[in-house]
Computed example of a mutant assay.
Amino acid sequence: MRINREIAHYAIIIFLITFATRATNNMIGTTTPLLTKYDLLFPNYLVGFLASAVTAVNLVSIVFVNARLPSQTRRLLFIISNALILALLPTYFLANSFSIWIISILTGFAYGLIMPNILTSASIVGDQFTAERLLVLYTLALSTSLVIGPLFETYLLTHFGYRYIFLLFIPLALVSFALSFKAHFPPDPKGPRRNVNVKQILRNKGLISALLANSTYSIPFVVFTAFIAIYAQSIYHVSRYLAYFSFVPFFLTSFLTRLYLTIRVPRGLFKPMIISIALTIIGIILLYLSQNYAAFIVSMTILGIPHGSVYPLSTLMISRGTSIEERNAANSYFAAFQGVLGIAVPALFGISTDLIGIRLSMALLLIPVITIAIIFTRFYLGSGLETFKPEIPSSR
Protein backbone atom coordinates (compact mmCIF):
# COMPACT_ATOMS: atom_id res chain seq x y z
CA MET A 1 0.00 0.00 0.00
CA ARG A 2 2.87 2.38 0.83
CA ILE A 3 4.45 1.72 -2.56
CA ASN A 4 1.13 2.40 -4.28
CA ARG A 5 0.74 5.69 -2.40
CA GLU A 6 4.27 6.73 -3.33
CA ILE A 7 3.65 5.95 -6.98
CA ALA A 8 0.33 7.84 -6.90
CA HIS A 9 2.03 10.83 -5.26
CA TYR A 10 4.81 10.81 -7.83
CA ALA A 11 2.28 10.46 -10.66
CA ILE A 12 0.65 13.70 -9.45
CA ILE A 13 4.04 15.44 -9.43
CA ILE A 14 4.80 14.22 -12.96
CA PHE A 15 1.41 15.40 -14.19
CA LEU A 16 1.69 18.86 -12.62
CA ILE A 17 5.27 19.61 -13.64
CA THR A 18 4.62 18.34 -17.15
CA PHE A 19 1.43 20.41 -17.39
CA ALA A 20 3.01 23.63 -16.14
CA THR A 21 6.23 23.24 -18.12
CA ARG A 22 4.60 22.31 -21.43
CA ALA A 23 1.91 25.00 -21.15
CA THR A 24 4.59 27.64 -20.71
CA ASN A 25 6.84 26.13 -23.37
CA ASN A 26 3.98 25.97 -25.87
CA MET A 27 2.94 29.55 -25.13
CA ILE A 28 6.47 30.74 -25.84
CA GLY A 29 6.79 28.61 -28.98
CA THR A 30 3.47 29.74 -30.48
CA THR A 31 3.39 33.36 -29.31
CA THR A 32 6.97 34.36 -30.13
CA PRO A 33 6.38 33.96 -33.91
CA LEU A 34 3.26 36.16 -33.60
CA LEU A 35 5.16 38.74 -31.54
CA THR A 36 7.93 38.88 -34.13
CA LYS A 37 5.55 38.90 -37.10
CA TYR A 38 3.01 41.49 -35.95
CA ASP A 39 4.79 43.55 -33.25
CA LEU A 40 8.39 43.46 -34.47
CA LEU A 41 7.37 43.25 -38.16
CA PHE A 42 9.62 40.32 -39.11
CA PRO A 43 9.10 38.84 -42.61
CA ASN A 44 8.14 35.15 -42.73
CA TYR A 45 11.66 33.97 -43.48
CA LEU A 46 13.00 35.69 -40.33
CA VAL A 47 10.17 34.20 -38.27
CA GLY A 48 11.29 30.79 -39.55
CA PHE A 49 14.98 31.52 -38.98
CA LEU A 50 14.34 32.54 -35.37
CA ALA A 51 12.43 29.31 -34.73
CA SER A 52 15.28 27.37 -36.35
CA ALA A 53 17.93 29.17 -34.28
CA VAL A 54 16.07 28.41 -31.04
CA THR A 55 15.81 24.75 -31.98
CA ALA A 56 19.50 24.60 -32.91
CA VAL A 57 20.50 25.82 -29.45
CA ASN A 58 17.96 23.44 -27.91
CA LEU A 59 19.62 20.60 -29.83
CA VAL A 60 23.07 21.54 -28.56
CA SER A 61 21.91 21.54 -24.95
CA ILE A 62 20.22 18.16 -25.38
CA VAL A 63 23.03 16.33 -27.19
CA PHE A 64 26.20 17.93 -25.89
CA VAL A 65 25.08 18.76 -22.35
CA ASN A 66 22.12 16.74 -21.09
CA ALA A 67 22.97 13.38 -22.70
CA ARG A 68 26.57 13.44 -21.47
CA LEU A 69 26.24 14.50 -17.84
CA PRO A 70 25.96 12.34 -14.68
CA SER A 71 22.61 12.19 -12.95
CA GLN A 72 23.27 14.62 -10.10
CA THR A 73 24.68 17.27 -12.43
CA ARG A 74 21.67 16.92 -14.72
CA ARG A 75 19.38 17.35 -11.72
CA LEU A 76 21.14 20.58 -10.69
CA LEU A 77 20.97 22.00 -14.23
CA PHE A 78 17.34 20.93 -14.48
CA ILE A 79 16.48 23.07 -11.44
CA ILE A 80 18.60 26.01 -12.65
CA SER A 81 16.98 25.87 -16.10
CA ASN A 82 13.50 26.07 -14.60
CA ALA A 83 14.64 29.12 -12.63
CA LEU A 84 16.03 30.65 -15.84
CA ILE A 85 12.69 30.29 -17.65
CA LEU A 86 11.00 32.05 -14.75
CA ALA A 87 13.48 34.91 -15.07
CA LEU A 88 13.24 35.16 -18.86
CA LEU A 89 9.46 35.54 -19.20
CA PRO A 90 9.40 39.24 -18.16
CA THR A 91 12.13 40.01 -20.72
CA TYR A 92 9.85 39.00 -23.61
CA PHE A 93 7.58 41.89 -22.62
CA LEU A 94 10.48 44.32 -23.17
CA ALA A 95 11.96 42.61 -26.24
CA ASN A 96 13.02 44.42 -29.39
CA SER A 97 14.13 43.11 -32.77
CA PHE A 98 17.64 42.42 -31.42
CA SER A 99 17.04 41.22 -27.86
CA ILE A 100 14.35 38.74 -28.95
CA TRP A 101 17.10 36.61 -30.51
CA ILE A 102 19.11 36.47 -27.26
CA ILE A 103 16.05 35.82 -25.09
CA SER A 104 14.74 33.10 -27.40
CA ILE A 105 18.11 31.36 -27.66
CA LEU A 106 18.51 31.26 -23.87
CA THR A 107 14.99 29.85 -23.61
CA GLY A 108 15.78 27.13 -26.15
CA PHE A 109 18.93 26.14 -24.26
CA ALA A 110 17.06 25.92 -20.95
CA TYR A 111 14.28 23.74 -22.34
CA GLY A 112 16.87 21.34 -23.73
CA LEU A 113 17.80 20.61 -20.12
CA ILE A 114 14.19 20.39 -18.94
CA MET A 115 11.96 18.40 -21.28
CA PRO A 116 14.10 15.24 -21.79
CA ASN A 117 14.57 14.90 -18.04
CA ILE A 118 10.85 15.10 -17.31
CA LEU A 119 10.32 12.34 -19.86
CA THR A 120 13.05 10.21 -18.29
CA SER A 121 11.65 10.86 -14.79
CA ALA A 122 8.29 9.50 -15.94
CA SER A 123 9.80 6.29 -17.33
CA ILE A 124 11.93 4.95 -14.46
CA VAL A 125 9.40 4.32 -11.67
CA GLY A 126 8.14 0.82 -10.86
CA ASP A 127 7.95 -2.15 -13.21
CA GLN A 128 7.46 -2.01 -16.97
CA PHE A 129 3.67 -1.83 -16.65
CA THR A 130 3.82 1.05 -14.15
CA ALA A 131 6.45 2.88 -16.20
CA GLU A 132 4.29 2.65 -19.33
CA ARG A 133 1.27 3.99 -17.47
CA LEU A 134 3.33 6.93 -16.20
CA LEU A 135 4.62 7.54 -19.71
CA VAL A 136 1.10 7.75 -21.07
CA LEU A 137 0.09 9.94 -18.10
CA TYR A 138 3.02 12.19 -19.01
CA THR A 139 1.74 12.51 -22.56
CA LEU A 140 -1.78 13.09 -21.22
CA ALA A 141 -0.43 15.97 -19.12
CA LEU A 142 1.19 17.35 -22.26
CA SER A 143 -2.15 17.32 -24.06
CA THR A 144 -4.08 18.74 -21.11
CA SER A 145 -1.71 21.69 -20.95
CA LEU A 146 -2.08 22.19 -24.69
CA VAL A 147 -5.86 22.50 -24.38
CA ILE A 148 -6.08 24.72 -21.30
CA GLY A 149 -3.07 26.88 -22.24
CA PRO A 150 -4.38 27.95 -25.68
CA LEU A 151 -7.91 28.42 -24.29
CA PHE A 152 -6.46 30.70 -21.63
CA GLU A 153 -4.36 32.57 -24.17
CA THR A 154 -7.26 32.94 -26.61
CA TYR A 155 -9.22 34.64 -23.83
CA LEU A 156 -6.25 36.84 -22.90
CA LEU A 157 -5.80 37.95 -26.50
CA THR A 158 -9.28 39.49 -26.45
CA HIS A 159 -7.96 41.93 -23.82
CA PHE A 160 -4.15 42.06 -24.14
CA GLY A 161 -1.43 42.23 -26.79
CA TYR A 162 1.14 39.52 -27.41
CA ARG A 163 3.74 41.02 -25.04
CA TYR A 164 1.48 40.77 -21.98
CA ILE A 165 0.89 37.05 -22.53
CA PHE A 166 4.41 36.23 -21.37
CA LEU A 167 3.85 38.02 -18.06
CA LEU A 168 0.57 36.23 -17.41
CA PHE A 169 2.21 32.79 -17.69
CA ILE A 170 4.74 33.50 -14.93
CA PRO A 171 2.66 31.64 -12.28
CA LEU A 172 2.90 28.40 -14.29
CA ALA A 173 6.67 28.80 -14.61
CA LEU A 174 6.79 29.23 -10.85
CA VAL A 175 4.97 25.89 -10.40
CA SER A 176 7.53 24.19 -12.68
CA PHE A 177 10.41 25.62 -10.68
CA ALA A 178 8.90 24.56 -7.34
CA LEU A 179 8.27 20.98 -8.51
CA SER A 180 11.67 20.64 -10.22
CA PHE A 181 13.15 19.74 -6.83
CA LYS A 182 10.85 16.68 -6.65
CA ALA A 183 11.71 15.05 -9.98
CA HIS A 184 13.44 11.65 -9.83
CA PHE A 185 16.63 11.01 -11.78
CA PRO A 186 18.00 7.53 -12.54
CA PRO A 187 21.08 6.53 -10.52
CA ASP A 188 24.41 6.41 -12.29
CA PRO A 189 25.95 2.92 -12.72
CA LYS A 190 28.06 1.77 -9.75
CA GLY A 191 31.79 2.04 -10.20
CA PRO A 192 33.43 4.10 -12.94
CA ARG A 193 30.90 5.87 -15.14
CA ARG A 194 30.38 3.97 -18.38
CA ASN A 195 30.36 6.17 -21.45
CA VAL A 196 27.22 5.85 -23.52
CA ASN A 197 27.83 3.81 -26.66
CA VAL A 198 26.39 6.26 -29.14
CA LYS A 199 26.54 3.86 -32.07
CA GLN A 200 24.74 1.18 -30.09
CA ILE A 201 22.02 3.58 -29.02
CA LEU A 202 21.54 4.93 -32.53
CA ARG A 203 21.23 1.37 -33.91
CA ASN A 204 18.55 0.48 -31.37
CA LYS A 205 15.42 -0.66 -33.21
CA GLY A 206 13.11 0.91 -30.66
CA LEU A 207 14.79 4.31 -31.06
CA ILE A 208 14.90 4.12 -34.87
CA SER A 209 11.23 3.13 -35.00
CA ALA A 210 10.33 6.01 -32.69
CA LEU A 211 12.32 8.49 -34.79
CA LEU A 212 10.61 7.44 -38.01
CA ALA A 213 7.15 7.25 -36.44
CA ASN A 214 7.37 10.64 -34.78
CA SER A 215 8.81 12.29 -37.89
CA THR A 216 5.58 11.61 -39.79
CA TYR A 217 3.96 14.11 -37.48
CA SER A 218 6.72 16.29 -36.05
CA ILE A 219 7.51 17.77 -39.48
CA PRO A 220 4.03 19.29 -39.96
CA PHE A 221 3.72 20.04 -36.25
CA VAL A 222 6.81 22.27 -36.09
CA VAL A 223 5.29 24.20 -38.99
CA PHE A 224 1.95 24.49 -37.19
CA THR A 225 3.64 25.76 -34.03
CA ALA A 226 5.31 28.66 -35.81
CA PHE A 227 2.93 29.40 -38.68
CA ILE A 228 -0.62 28.08 -38.22
CA ALA A 229 -1.94 31.23 -36.52
CA ILE A 230 -0.18 33.30 -39.19
CA TYR A 231 -1.81 31.02 -41.79
CA ALA A 232 -5.25 31.70 -40.30
CA GLN A 233 -4.76 35.46 -40.30
CA SER A 234 -3.23 35.50 -43.80
CA ILE A 235 -5.73 33.19 -45.54
CA TYR A 236 -9.00 33.84 -43.67
CA HIS A 237 -8.30 37.38 -42.38
CA VAL A 238 -9.58 36.63 -38.88
CA SER A 239 -8.72 38.48 -35.66
CA ARG A 240 -5.66 37.52 -33.63
CA TYR A 241 -7.67 35.68 -30.99
CA LEU A 242 -9.61 33.64 -33.59
CA ALA A 243 -6.34 32.84 -35.33
CA TYR A 244 -4.86 31.58 -32.06
CA PHE A 245 -8.09 29.72 -31.24
CA SER A 246 -7.19 27.24 -34.01
CA PHE A 247 -4.88 25.58 -31.50
CA VAL A 248 -7.83 24.77 -29.21
CA PRO A 249 -9.73 22.14 -31.28
CA PHE A 250 -6.36 20.81 -32.42
CA PHE A 251 -5.13 20.20 -28.89
CA LEU A 252 -8.58 19.15 -27.64
CA THR A 253 -8.73 16.12 -29.94
CA SER A 254 -5.09 15.47 -29.06
CA PHE A 255 -6.06 15.44 -25.39
CA LEU A 256 -8.99 13.05 -25.94
CA THR A 257 -6.75 10.71 -27.92
CA ARG A 258 -4.14 10.63 -25.17
CA LEU A 259 -6.83 10.15 -22.54
CA TYR A 260 -7.94 7.04 -24.43
CA LEU A 261 -4.33 5.81 -24.59
CA THR A 262 -3.98 6.36 -20.84
CA ILE A 263 -6.94 4.06 -20.21
CA ARG A 264 -5.95 1.51 -22.83
CA VAL A 265 -2.21 1.24 -23.37
CA PRO A 266 -1.88 -0.53 -26.74
CA ARG A 267 -0.01 -3.82 -26.97
CA GLY A 268 0.41 -3.59 -30.72
CA LEU A 269 1.73 -0.23 -31.96
CA PHE A 270 1.69 -0.66 -35.75
CA LYS A 271 -2.06 -0.42 -36.39
CA PRO A 272 -2.61 2.79 -34.37
CA MET A 273 0.46 4.30 -36.06
CA ILE A 274 -0.88 3.59 -39.55
CA ILE A 275 -4.26 5.10 -38.63
CA SER A 276 -2.46 8.17 -37.24
CA ILE A 277 -0.42 8.61 -40.42
CA ALA A 278 -3.56 8.32 -42.57
CA LEU A 279 -5.30 11.02 -40.50
CA THR A 280 -2.25 13.28 -40.84
CA ILE A 281 -2.42 13.00 -44.63
CA ILE A 282 -6.18 13.61 -44.69
CA GLY A 283 -5.85 16.60 -42.34
CA ILE A 284 -3.14 18.30 -44.42
CA ILE A 285 -5.17 17.81 -47.61
CA LEU A 286 -8.23 19.39 -45.97
CA LEU A 287 -6.08 22.21 -44.58
CA TYR A 288 -4.91 23.02 -48.11
CA LEU A 289 -8.41 22.77 -49.62
CA SER A 290 -10.25 24.72 -46.88
CA GLN A 291 -11.99 27.77 -48.32
CA ASN A 292 -13.22 29.29 -45.07
CA TYR A 293 -12.38 29.47 -41.38
CA ALA A 294 -14.94 26.81 -40.38
CA ALA A 295 -13.44 24.23 -42.75
CA PHE A 296 -9.99 25.20 -41.50
CA ILE A 297 -11.09 24.45 -37.92
CA VAL A 298 -12.38 21.02 -39.05
CA SER A 299 -8.98 20.21 -40.57
CA MET A 300 -7.22 21.29 -37.36
CA THR A 301 -9.57 19.08 -35.34
CA ILE A 302 -8.64 16.06 -37.46
CA LEU A 303 -4.93 16.85 -37.25
CA GLY A 304 -5.17 16.87 -33.46
CA ILE A 305 -5.83 13.11 -33.39
CA PRO A 306 -2.41 12.03 -34.70
CA HIS A 307 -0.81 14.72 -32.57
CA GLY A 308 -2.32 12.95 -29.58
CA SER A 309 -1.32 9.45 -30.67
CA VAL A 310 2.03 9.56 -32.47
CA TYR A 311 4.16 10.93 -29.63
CA PRO A 312 3.01 8.47 -26.94
CA LEU A 313 3.28 5.59 -29.40
CA SER A 314 6.84 6.70 -30.16
CA THR A 315 7.80 6.89 -26.48
CA LEU A 316 6.41 3.37 -26.00
CA MET A 317 8.66 2.16 -28.81
CA ILE A 318 11.66 3.57 -26.94
CA SER A 319 10.50 2.17 -23.61
CA ARG A 320 10.03 -1.31 -25.09
CA GLY A 321 13.26 -1.28 -27.05
CA THR A 322 15.75 0.10 -24.49
CA SER A 323 17.02 -0.74 -21.01
CA ILE A 324 16.71 1.73 -18.11
CA GLU A 325 20.45 2.47 -18.41
CA GLU A 326 20.00 3.41 -22.06
CA ARG A 327 16.78 5.32 -21.55
CA ASN A 328 18.13 8.83 -20.84
CA ALA A 329 20.48 8.76 -23.82
CA ALA A 330 17.77 7.32 -26.08
CA ASN A 331 15.25 9.95 -24.97
CA SER A 332 17.85 12.67 -25.45
CA TYR A 333 18.67 11.55 -28.98
CA PHE A 334 14.97 11.18 -29.71
CA ALA A 335 14.41 14.78 -28.63
CA ALA A 336 17.57 15.83 -30.49
CA PHE A 337 16.34 14.38 -33.78
CA GLN A 338 13.14 16.35 -33.39
CA GLY A 339 15.47 19.29 -32.86
CA VAL A 340 17.20 18.63 -36.19
CA LEU A 341 13.81 18.77 -37.89
CA GLY A 342 12.99 21.89 -35.91
CA ILE A 343 16.13 23.57 -37.26
CA ALA A 344 15.53 22.78 -40.91
CA VAL A 345 11.75 22.81 -41.33
CA PRO A 346 10.73 26.29 -40.03
CA ALA A 347 13.47 28.06 -41.98
CA LEU A 348 12.68 26.18 -45.19
CA PHE A 349 8.95 26.71 -44.72
CA GLY A 350 9.43 30.42 -44.08
CA ILE A 351 11.44 30.77 -47.31
CA SER A 352 8.85 28.70 -49.16
CA THR A 353 5.99 30.94 -48.04
CA ASP A 354 7.78 33.99 -49.41
CA LEU A 355 8.38 32.20 -52.74
CA ILE A 356 5.17 30.26 -53.46
CA GLY A 357 2.72 31.33 -50.75
CA ILE A 358 1.74 29.88 -47.40
CA ARG A 359 -1.18 27.75 -48.66
CA LEU A 360 0.82 25.80 -51.27
CA SER A 361 3.68 25.45 -48.80
CA MET A 362 1.27 23.65 -46.44
CA ALA A 363 0.36 21.18 -49.20
CA LEU A 364 4.03 20.36 -49.81
CA LEU A 365 4.23 18.92 -46.29
CA LEU A 366 2.58 15.79 -47.74
CA ILE A 367 5.81 14.83 -49.52
CA PRO A 368 7.97 14.14 -46.42
CA VAL A 369 5.03 12.69 -44.45
CA ILE A 370 4.23 10.04 -47.09
CA THR A 371 7.90 9.25 -47.77
CA ILE A 372 8.75 8.71 -44.09
CA ALA A 373 5.56 6.69 -43.56
CA ILE A 374 6.68 4.20 -46.22
CA ILE A 375 10.15 3.88 -44.65
CA PHE A 376 8.66 3.43 -41.16
CA THR A 377 6.29 0.69 -42.32
CA ARG A 378 9.09 -1.34 -43.91
CA PHE A 379 11.46 -0.93 -40.97
CA TYR A 380 9.01 -1.50 -38.13
CA LEU A 381 7.48 -4.64 -39.59
CA GLY A 382 10.96 -6.15 -39.72
CA SER A 383 12.12 -4.93 -36.31
CA GLY A 384 10.44 -7.56 -34.12
CA LEU A 385 9.12 -4.90 -31.73
CA GLU A 386 5.49 -5.68 -32.51
CA THR A 387 5.84 -9.05 -30.74
CA PHE A 388 6.70 -7.30 -27.43
CA LYS A 389 4.20 -7.90 -24.64
CA PRO A 390 4.41 -5.49 -21.70
CA GLU A 391 4.41 -6.94 -18.23
CA ILE A 392 0.80 -6.74 -17.06
CA PRO A 393 -0.24 -7.86 -13.59
CA SER A 394 -2.74 -10.72 -13.54
CA SER A 395 -5.08 -8.71 -11.31
CA ARG A 396 -5.65 -6.13 -14.03
Rank of each mutant, 00 (worst) to 15 (best):
L365M: 09
K37V: 05
M362G: 00
Y155C: 01
P266L: 00
I375P: 00
Y241I: 06
L135K: 09
A226Q: 11
A83T: 06
I80E: 13
S215T: 13
I351T: 04
V63G: 01
F247P: 01
T154E: 00
P306A: 15
Y288P: 06
I281P: 07
Y10L: 10
F224K: 02
G283E: 01
Q128V: 09
T322E: 02
L137V: 09
I375Q: 02
S104W: 05
A294F: 02
L207Q: 07
L167S: 04
G339N: 03
Y244N: 06
A329L: 07
L172M: 06
V47Y: 01
S99C: 06
I282A: 10
K182Q: 14
I7Q: 02
L146A: 04
I102V: 14
P368Q: 14
I370M: 11
I105Y: 02
V222H: 00
L365K: 07
K182E: 10
F224M: 12
A173W: 14
T262G: 04
N117K: 02
I219M: 08
S61L: 12
G384C: 13
T21N: 04
L269W: 06
N66L: 09
A294D: 04
A51Q: 11
F349T: 04
S309K: 08
A243D: 07
S332Y: 08
T322H: 04
H9T: 15
L179Q: 01
I105A: 09
F296D: 11
I324R: 08
Y380D: 07
L172V: 03
T31K: 00
R74V: 00
L355E: 05
V60S: 11
H307G: 06
N197V: 01
F349P: 04
R163H: 06
S323A: 10
S209G: 11
L313N: 04
T154P: 07
G357N: 13
A83L: 11
T315L: 15
P187D: 05
I370Q: 05
R133E: 10
L106V: 14
E386W: 10
A294T: 07
Y311E: 14
Y333F: 15
G206C: 01
T280I: 07
G304S: 13
H307F: 01
R258Q: 10
R68C: 06
F251T: 13
L381W: 12
A67S: 15
Q128S: 14
T377A: 14
G283N: 02
V248F: 04
Y45M: 14
L46K: 12
S239G: 11
T73F: 06
A226E: 05
S290Q: 12
